[in-house]
Amino acid sequence: MDRAQKAESIETLKGVFAEAGAVVVAHNLGLTVAEMTDLRGRLREQGATFKVVKNRLALKALDGKGGDAVLDLFKGPVGIAYAPDPVSAAKVTSQFAKDNDKFVIVGALMDETVLDAKGVESLSKLPSLDELRAKIVGLVQAPATKVAGVLQAPAGQLARVFGAYAAKDAA
């Protein structure tokens, strides 16, 4: 990798670290190509991405973000999983780590905050952005549905009474 490629990689990683809600760092030593493809497919379904990175380039891209705790994350063969939503990458990687012993979550970065493996596990248990949106829409719609039901009930009863009188007169 020449200097131009390294500079381009650093700029790409700077963009990833700036735009991602959370960046999960994991050791992926010993994973087969099929397992990596499976992980990437699962992440892609959730709008996340997995990328194997060089530690030195990642640390240069971070430019001191996270302090000394970041140095512990980027040791050995690591890959990063990231998405705009802070929860989706953590959910998928945590589930994959439970299914596969060779995939070990080291920690995560959220802006300036460095999380350990337990922090990533806690993050993975939170509802995703789509789940939160669905809950909010449900809460907003519920009162409107109840109000519409209350308003329609008297009109429906009145229509049934008129229908009963019409059926009685016809008989």
Results as ranks from 00 to 15, higher is better:
96 F>I: 07
93 T>N: 05
23 V>P: 01
106 V>L: 05
142 A>C: 02
118 K>N: 12
159 A>R: 14
130 D>S: 12
154 P>G: 02
136 I>K: 09
7 A>M: 09
87 V>C: 09
169 D>V: 14
105 I>R: 02
98 K>R: 14
137 V>P: 14
96 F>V: 07
61 A>Y: 07
149 G>R: 04
158 L>S: 12
98 K>W: 09
40 R>N: 10
140 V>K: 01
41 G>F: 14
1 M>L: 11
46 Q>Y: 07
98 K>E: 15
75 K>G: 03
87 V>K: 10
53 V>D: 03
144 A>Y: 03
21 G>R: 08
34 A>K: 15
40 R>D: 11
161 V>H: 11
163 G>H: 15
122 S>W: 12
53 V>G: 03
53 V>I: 13
60 K>W: 03
55 N>L: 05
32 T>K: 15
109 L>H: 05
138 G>D: 01
10 I>A: 08
107 G>S: 02
8 E>T: 08
3 R>T: 04
58 A>S: 14
65 K>P: 01
167 A>Y: 09
41 G>Q: 14
137 V>I: 13
84 P>H: 07
75 K>D: 06
124 S>G: 13
110 M>W: 11
164 A>Y: 10
163 G>I: 09
136 I>L: 12
159 A>H: 14
27 H>W: 07
111 D>V: 01
38 D>T: 15
